[in-house]
């Protein structure tokens, strides 16, 4: 293994099949990247890009797709949903840049777009860009997304700034706690992107299976209600990958969730990991 190999995501995660040493080194992988801009006709995997405002999400998007979306030092710059593509190895990826939000629980349009895409769009991988200098705040969104999807990669961006501020982040510990791959990066300078590409590829192809950390302590005030609705949901939809999130949204009266339940779309949501293994 070369030193540039990304840290192994978590210990309780099935490790990737042994790849030959050169194919895993970042130089080789970077050469494999083909930026496709918006010229995407067909793709093998859909990758959603989520994150807090002002974390360099657009920079990551631009670096991977070769597009030049403006990235200002303003919170919340990406307003509409942007799409682009890249090819990596033998696969073509469609990258969808979601609006930058602090949370996914509110009624604002931005959050609804992001929430509905991650849930109903069922991206093969959701990349969550987090600001290493303000990790605690960013984990709010990360943990919410991990409630929805079990296929995620955390891109710990702005590592250069963290270093400048004297902050160190133990990405291995973080990966263990979150249960998904964590890739430290400085997207502005292109650092960490080869590792990010590889992590996305591994999660998309199922070489790495995530075991995301879900909320460990449910507040006592909502526990009975949540348990009851989750019970109902699990009885009706045994394959639902995220019954607790769905129950939470139903309890807060989220209309798109109610519609999905009534219209039967909820039945089509199922763990992607299950379909992968079923295909084989």
């Amino acid at each position: 293994m070369s030193s540039a190999h990304p840290p192994s995501p978590t210990e309780n995660v099935a490790t990737a099949p042994v790849v030959d040493a050169c194919a895993s080194c970042s130089v080789y992988r970077a050469a494999n990247l083909k930026k496709l801009g918006v010229a995407m006709e067909d793709w093998d995997f859909v990758v959603a890009l989520a994150g807090n405002p002002n974390t360099g999400k657009s920079t990551v998007f631009n670096a991977l797709t070769g597009l030049r979306q403006h990235t200002g030092n303003w919170p919340g710059k990406t307003v509409a949903r942007a799409e682009g593509g890249y090819a990596y190895g033998d696969h073509r990826f469609k990258l969808v840049d979601l609006p930058g939000t602090y949370s996914l629980l509110s009624t604002s349009l931005d959050e609804q777009i992001a929430r509905d895409f991650i849930l109903f769009g069922q991206p093969d991988v959701t990349v969550i860009v987090a600001d290493a200098t303000r990790l605690e705040r960013n984990l709010n969104l990360v943990l919410q997304i991990l409630e929805i999807t079990d296929r995620a990669v955390v891109c710990l961006n702005l590592m250069d700034e963290a270093r400048r501020h004297g902050i160190t982040v133990d990405d291995r510990q973080l990966a263990r706690d979150l249960g998904v791959p964590v890739v430290p990066a400085s997207a502005r300078f292109g650092r960490g992107l080869p590792e990010l590409l590889q992590a996305i590829n591994e999660v998309a192809t199922g070489q790495v299976v995530c075991r995301p950390q879900r909320l460990e302590t449910v507040p006592a005030a909502i526990r009975p209600a949540l348990t009851a609705v989750v019970g109902e949901l699990e009885a009706a939809y045994p394959n639902l990958p995220n019954p607790r999130w769905v129950a939470l949204r139903l309890l807060s009266g989220d209309e798109s969730m109610v519609d999905a339940l009534r219209g039967g779309q909820l039945g089509t949501l199922h763990s992607l990991a299950t379909t992968e293994s079923n295909k084989e």
Binding site: E136, T168, V169
Partner: peptide, 12 residues
């Protein structure tokens, strides 16, 4: 939970 996780992995 975010605070607990951050405490374990971030040292400032």
């Amino acid at each position: 939970q975010a605070a607990r996780i951050a405490e374990r992995s971030v040292s400032s």
